[in-house]
Design a protein around this nucleic acid. Structure first.
Length: 423
RNA sequence: GGAGAGAUGGCCGAGUGGUCGAAGGCGCACGCCUGGAAAGUGUGUAUACGCCAAAAGCGUAUCAUGGGUUCGAAUCCCAUUCUCUCCGCCA
């Protein structure tokens, strides 16, 4: 949620930045300002009303104490009137506040001025690419075929036991999963992140805090009886640790890392996008989350970007970094870098990480604040990134490293897998 | 799942109808003391919104949440949520 005060003082700038996301916000911003004006007016009226009745109550108490019951009863008549008007004024204020909030939450985050304009993924800007496409031998196949050839991932079994999008990992496939998780966690800890094991289900307030609710609730699995949501990413529980928290300036940067299963309904997805490991309902991901001083969050974003690039380099995967254009960015993000690895047998780029700065957008929803050097309470900036999401990494590892003898494991992983070839 | 107890500030904890945003303690910040530190000591220490050009100041709300009683509620009543203890079940 954008900050009301910021909108009030920088209306034109907010409109300009939202235009990068192809949103003409002038009307809605004007509506927010109008509502704000009316809200303040209503609050003033109500406050004055309550102030008067508070004052009278005090007098009444004193009169009773000094035995002047008659005078006290006279004053009581006035409070009866005030009570009625207070009720009306309160309702009016509540309506205006609700309306203002409802309008405010409809606005997505303002993109950073450097975000390229554009409508769709094709307008994204590739800012970096690295690594060589492998020369596959004649007879190389996509990962789903490798999975069954070496019996390491079983999609059929997943279909039987649960449903599509819930594969079993078996033998060296399972071991590879565990190796990747440990590798990613160890690297994050070396980089100064604090390891967290979060709950995999969260309540409604948490879903709201990171912005999955109310707009994207169809994406999450929901336990009706307990009113709990399965997390679509560890970002949700890990960021919500700091809901309603006021940090000290010295606490920055807060760096947490969490491995978790992620659950996504992915309603409406189909075709080659969901083939094999390309899109699952349950998958593994290591997520890095930082909370930072607003003045330093963009430095931190670059640091996180370099960190993720380092991971892909270690895995010897060809990748590119894409700066998302306004039209392709998420609702909550101010600047996002997507990382895509090249999966050689499918001959396509697979998104394996998304690193974003949310500025104060999530913090405002969550009331995540800090006291600056002057003792002023301000909103923090939040950032997060996948480091990394496993399935597509596995897909490209399998495809890119396949040889007639078997699948070669990159050397950085061997001490985690305990084998260097899947055959 | 059954029975009971409880929810107060960063933490502990007092407060059963008015003068309570809330005693006391701890913690924290700044100062004094000290060669330095500890101890001691003094002051300060919630959040949001509003009024004001702004600061100071003032107003309003907030003692789990929502509603009610009352001129007046942290305090009384109702509902909800959560936590704890005991029993049952269980990795």
């Amino acid at each position: 949620m954008l900050e009301l005060n910021y909108i009030r003082e920088h209306t034109a700038e907010v409109a300009e930045r939202l235009a990068i996301k192809n949103i003409d916000a002038t009307e809605i911003l004007q509506r927010i300002l109008d509502l704000d004006l009316r809200r303040r007016e209503a609050q003033k009226e109500l406050d004055d009303n309550l102030a008067e009745s508070n004052a009278i109550s005090k007098q009444v108490g004193e009169l009773f104490k000094s035995g002047k019951a008659a005078e006290a009863n006279e004053l009581k008549a006035r409070t009866a009137e005030l009570k009625v008007s207070a009720k009306t004024l309160q309702e009016k204020l509540d309506t205006l506040v609700a309306e203002q909030n409802n309008t405010l939450v409809q606005l997505p985050n303002t993109p950073h001025p450097s975000v390229p304009r554009g409508k769709s993924a094709s307008d994204n800007e590739t800012v970096h690419s690295e690594g060589q496409f492998p020369d596959l031998y004649e007879g190389a196949v996509p990962h789903w075929e490798l999975a069954s050839k070496y019996d390491i991932i079983d999609f059929e079994l997943g279909n039987k036991v649960t449903g599509a999008g819930f594969p079993f990992y078996k033998g060296k496939g399972a071991r590879l999963q565990r190796a990747l998780i440990n590798f990613f966690l160890d690297r994050a800890i070396e980089a100064g992140y604090h390891e967290i094991q979060p709950p995999l289900v969260v309540n409604e307030a948490s879903g709201y805090g990171t912005g999955q609710l109310p707009d994207k609730d169809g994406q999450m699995y929901f336990c009706e009886v307990d009113k709990l949501y399965l997390i679509p990413t560890a970002e949700v529980p890990v960021t919500n640790i700091y809901r309603d928290v006021i940090l000290k300036a010295g606490d920055f940067p807060v760096k947490n890392v969490a491995y978790s299963n992620c659950f996504r309904r992915e309603a409406g997805s189909y075709g080659k996008d969901v083939r094999g490991l390309n899109r699952l309902h349950q998958f593994d991901k290591v997520e890095i989350v930082q909370i930072q001083d607003p003045d330093k969050s963009y430095e931190t974003l670059e640091e996180m970007r370099d960190y993720v690039a380092g991971l892909l380099r270690s895995l010897e995967l060809p990748f590119r970094i894409v700066k998302l254009c306004g039209g392709d960015m998420s609702f909550t993000s101010a600047l996002t870098y997507d990382f895509e690895v090249y999966s050689a047998a499918q001959e396509r780029w697979l998104e394996v990480s998304s690193v974003s700065n949310f500025e104060s957008f999530q913090a405002n929803r969550m009331k995540l604040r800090f006291k600056d050097e002057n003792g002023k309470t301000r909103l923090c900036h939040t950032l997060n990134g996948s480091a990394l999401a496993l399935p597509r990494i596995v897909a490209s590892l399998l495809e890119n490293n396949q040889t007639p003898e078997g699948i070669r494991i990159p050397s950085a992983l061997v001490r985690y897998t305990g084998f260097d070839l899947i055959s």
